[in-house]
Design a protein around this nucleic acid. Structure first.
Length: 631
RNA sequence: AGCGGGGUAGAGCAGCCUGGAGUGCUCGUCGGGCCCAUAACCCGAAGGUCGUGCGGUUCAAAUCCCACCCCCGCUACCA
């Protein structure tokens, strides 16, 4: 009989990152899944790795005075060490610089090119001349380069594009036919509704740097990010037969690429799709977004050092949140679970039972206690990725065991049969928990003399000499009183008290709302001063593809030069009506990209409540000069 | 602005899809028990207008529908 295969992946990580709680979570989940399926007799292949190409790496390497390959070679151990610390048992660590990967990427590129799904065009992006690089809207600060504080300009570059737009229908069919393709469902719905809005072709090559895989049909170009990166999943298993993947693990930020780009690429190349994308949320740290710049990053070393136990970290991350949703990591939360659940419940149970057995011994009997553990339910929960609930099942069984010791008063009765039931139950607990906390479970197995596999679950534990041994987990003291946190708590409490007082005094809610509204509506003069309004003249009016409400306007703002904005007035004003008109322009509104065009501010217009009427505001006197300030 | 997620006891959550007494979990608080165990473990108690609407559907709403308020996230050629 052929054993069933199971192939699970993590995303490949950017090697210049420090492995932090987010990376750790994804990778641990993949490890838990792979260990679980292995225990169940599947032939598992577990892939992780790094994404090593691209301009950023090239630049970082130059800065360090190294060749890119040399540079990344030095970064890889950081990830491998992190995974070792967390007991991640992967089968291959793929690097996009691996020769077999590069070869396969080129093969696929050629296939897709031959099919006519790649065409030559121009890439347009926001470019800082001083840095000689493109920035994304997010990276820019008010449209300015974060380093040079000067505006980024729109620049064009030769590039090859992948015809993503061609695959809209086929993708929608894929989602419809395979509802399980994207998990959880909310993500699936999100993707579907966005794909329905239409797809834009995406650029797959660059000529502005050369640290990447060369396009087989044009050696001047190197393959750019996603096309190269996504293919790792396929290239790692093309030869060994594990493809298609059963589960791609990832955080929600890269769902779009995996749910849209990836299957479209595979369709084009005539390759089978992966079966499932497992999408999880973000981890915050003390309720704040994890970011390097704000110093809110918690790396794997720190993570493990908090409880000095990698199993605690693995346990915490899987137990604390519902898979798919966002979670908050805090030292206190980790330590609370470590002490409360691992030390006091599991550790203590092992300790007291092994101690009693050492003193009184065992006598075989039927394990009635085991009926309280629903193994079938546990398995179902894991197969549905409900790790928190699965762990809860085991931990309530641990509670039942602790209760059993208590109620049976073993220290008085010295009942060897009851002790046997407990020992056999501990065997069950350790086997079930093994995918989550492998190191501790192996210790238990050694202490109680059984093997960790699913067959042993049903095989009664054989009698052997059991000794008390060392503690599985040591309690950790949580010391620091975070001032900030206390302050936050106070504020929150105050707000609630206020609300309660308000209710008690039975103030008319309408009056209250009115008062609040007034408070919000009041603006300090200093707030007003932040707003820069100017007279501007409309110089050009252009269409934007696929935009039925927007005009792209070029404005002459006098001393501020020329600016481009997108204005939602297409339905109200014709081109001719706008050209050369003087308007009032809000210059320092945060720029944003609308339909692919950066809008650097907005114009002022009057509008009625349902927005069916829009009237431009214009200086009453036509000799108002461009760039004049409104104050 | 659009889309998604959330608002349940002092704190953190689950329950909602598939309606059935506010059910459950963890921490904290209070009382008791036990002495095998890592100051652990066991039993019990207090504590909630389930964001708002005396909103709608229903015999029945935390759960389904509608409106509103507040928080958080995402908005694609970015690792």
């Amino acid at each position: 009989m052929k054993t069933k295969k199971f192939y699970v992946t993590t995303p490949i990580y950017y090697p210049n990152d420090i492995p932090h709680v987010g990376h750790a979570y994804t990778t641990i989940v993949a490890d838990v899944i792979s260990r679980f399926y292995r225990l169940n007799g599947y032939d598992v292949f577990f892939l992780t790795g790094t994404d090593e190409h691209g301009k950023k790496i090239q630049e970082a390497a130059e800065k360090a005075g190294k060749k890119p390959k040399e540079f990344v070679d030095e970064l890889i151990p950081k990830f491998k060490d992190a995974w070792k610390k967390l007991n991640i048992n992967y089968d291959r660590f793929i690097r996009t610089t691996d020769k077999d990967h590069e070869k396969i990427v080129q093969e696929v590129l050629q296939k897709v090119y031959d099919k006519g799904d790649i065409y030559f065009g121009k890439y347009e992006g926001l470019y800082c001349v001083a840095c000689e690089r493109y920035y994304t809207e997010k990276e820019l600060e008010n449209g300015n380069c974060p380093i040079h504080k000067r505006p980024a300009i729109l620049l064009k570059e030769d590039s090859y594009f992948f015809r993503l737009s061609k695959y809209q229908k086929k993708l929608l069919e894929l989602y419809k036919k395979n509802p399980e393709f994207i998990f959880p469902e909310s993500r699936r719905n999100e993707v579907i509704s966005r794909v329905k809005e239409g797809l834009r072709d995406f650029s797959i090559s660059r000529t502005s740097f050369d640290w990447g895989i060369k396009l087989p049909f044009d050696k001047k170009h190197v393959c750019y990010v996603w096309f190269d990166a996504l293919l790792n999943y396929y290239s790692a298993t093309k030869e060994n037969g594990y493809w298609p993947a059963d589960a791609h693990l990832m955080a929600k930020d890269i769902v779009w690429f995996h749910a849209v780009y990836w299957p479209a690429m595979l369709m084009s190349a005539g390759i089978k799709f992966p079966k499932r994308l497992l999408v999880h949320g973000y981890w915050t740290f003390d309720k704040e977004k994890i970011s390097k710049s704000r110093g809110k990053i918690i790396n794997v070393d720190e993570l493990v050092s908090l409880t000095k136990n990698s199993d605690s970290v693995r346990y915490f991350l899987l137990r604390d949140i519902v898979f798919g949703e966002d979670g908050d990591f805090s030292e206190k939360a980790l330590i609370d679970r470590h002490n409360g659940e691992l030390v006091n419940k599991l550790g203590n149970l092992i300790s007291r039972v092994s101690g009693l057995i050492e003193k009184y011994g065992l006598e075989k009997c039927e394990n009635l206690l085991a009926k309280k553990m629903n193994i079938k339910k546990f398995n179902e929960l894991i197969k549905n990725y409900e790790f928190d609930k699965a762990l809860n099942e085991v931990f309530s069984f641990i509670d039942r065991c602790n209760e059993y010791v208590q109620h049976k008063k073993i220290w008085e009765t010295k009942n060897k049969k009851v002790l046997y039931e407990l020992a056999d139950s501990i065997k069950i607990i350790a086997i079930l928990l093994y995918p989550f906390i492998p190191e501790s479970c192996e210790k238990i197995a050694k202490q109680f003399n059984f093997k960790i596999n699913f067959k042993e679950l049903k095989t009664p534990l054989k009698i052997s000499k059991i000794q008390k041994g060392e503690h599985l987990f040591s309690p950790v003291e949580y010391k620091k009183e975070d001032k900030q946190k206390r302050d936050k708590g106070l504020q929150k409490g105050d707000k609630e008290n206020l609300q309660k007082n308000v209710n008690n005094e039975k103030i008319n809610k309408q009056v209250l709302i009115h008062k609040i509204m007034e408070g919000i509506a009041e603006v300090d003069f200093s707030d007003w001063q932040k707003i820069d309004l100017r007279v501007a003249q409309i110089k050009e009016v252009e269409e934007i593809p696929n935009a039925d409400k927007l005009w792209k306007l070029k404005l002459d703002v006098g001393e501020l030069g020329e600016r481009t904005i997108c204005a939602g007035i297409k339905q109200f004003y014709k081109k001719e009506e706008l050209i050369n008109k003087k308007i009032i322009y809000f210059t320092n509104l945060k720029p944003r990209i609308l339909k692919g065009v950066e809008s650097q501010g907005m114009l002022l217009a009057a509008t009625n409540s349902d927005h069916t009427k829009v009237i431009l505001i214009s200086p009453i006197d036509n000799n108002a000069e461009n760039g004049m300030k409104i104050s």
